[in-house]
Design a protein around this nucleic acid. Structure first.
Lengths: 139, 139
DNA sequence: GCTTGACCTTCCAGCAAGGGGAAGCCCTAG
DNA sequence: CTAGGGCTTCCCCTTGCTGGAAGGTCAAGC
């Protein structure tokens, strides 16, 4: 397969696939004309990578997952730990975003959003008390 | 004030403050020895930026918010729109993360996490059906 | 006066994870 | 034989900084 075929199969852009080769995630063969040749196993790996990335795993996580995937002797505990750590990171991010969301929603709510210049959003950004006191007051 | 002082005041690293000058967010004066001199107004702006960034606004959003903040003739509607768009982006991100989280939590749950090689996480990443069928089956 | 250490300056490099686009082969169809 | 699409490498761009090297400055201590 050429890169276009495997791109269509995996859903990854050709650019991304070349990048993955660059950083050593896949090692396609080369034809005499210089074209990359992807085997079934390469296509399979790329699909694996696409799905791992879609779940938010970092490239390094993907590299490790792929290595475990190829290792018939792996312990599932190793895989699980990577996944659990990722789950934790996701939870942290969600928590962070929710906090931002809460503050921002408050401010948006308090802002008239008309032609007048008075704006609680700007007022808040301009003052220092981003602490519980203020949260209580605006709650 | 020197950069160290304003860094302590605003909570931003000196590096970040230099970067903000680079991209034109603040314009400190210069002393004869080449040191940056920050006025009260600069310190104030940096604090504003720090808080805006903490709420997740992009640098471009911050630039616009800062301009509106300095414009006494602004309409609060303009501020509100920036904030609302940001709120939407946050909501999208939260939704995306929650979906990842759900899938991942399922898989982690299904994985024994012991010395054996069998691993539903890898099995899932290796197969193509990331659709409702599978969600139903694993639910 | 001299040294030491904490500041400050600039510039260069790099992170994640690719995206955009130029310049130039290769291959096939009409 | 030419047009087009696909492929190649190469390098810069993105976001928002962060680290480090090489060097100037300043205040304190001896």
């Amino acid at each position: 397969m050429n890169i276009g075929d495997v791109a269509a199969l995996s859903g990854l852009p050709a650019k991304t696939i070349r990048y993955y080769e660059d950083i050593g995630l896949v090692k396609p063969l080369r034809s005499t004309n210089g074209y990359r040749i992807f085997r079934e196993s390469d296509a399979h790996k790329l699909a694996f990578l696409g799905r791992s990335r879609a779940l938010g795993f970092s490239i390094e996580d993907c590299r490790n997952l792929l290595a475990l995937y190829e290792d018939e002797e792996r312990a599932s505990a190793e895989v699980k730990e990577i996944a659990e750590q990722h789950l934790e990171r996701i939870d942290e991010k969600i928590a962070e975003l929710k906090e931002m969301r809460a503050t921002l929603a408050h401010l948006v709510d308090a802002c008239a959003g008309d032609h007048r210049p008075d704006c609680p959003i700007l007022a808040d950004l301009a003052t220092k008390q981003h602490d519980e006191e203020q949260l209580k007051r605006t709650a």
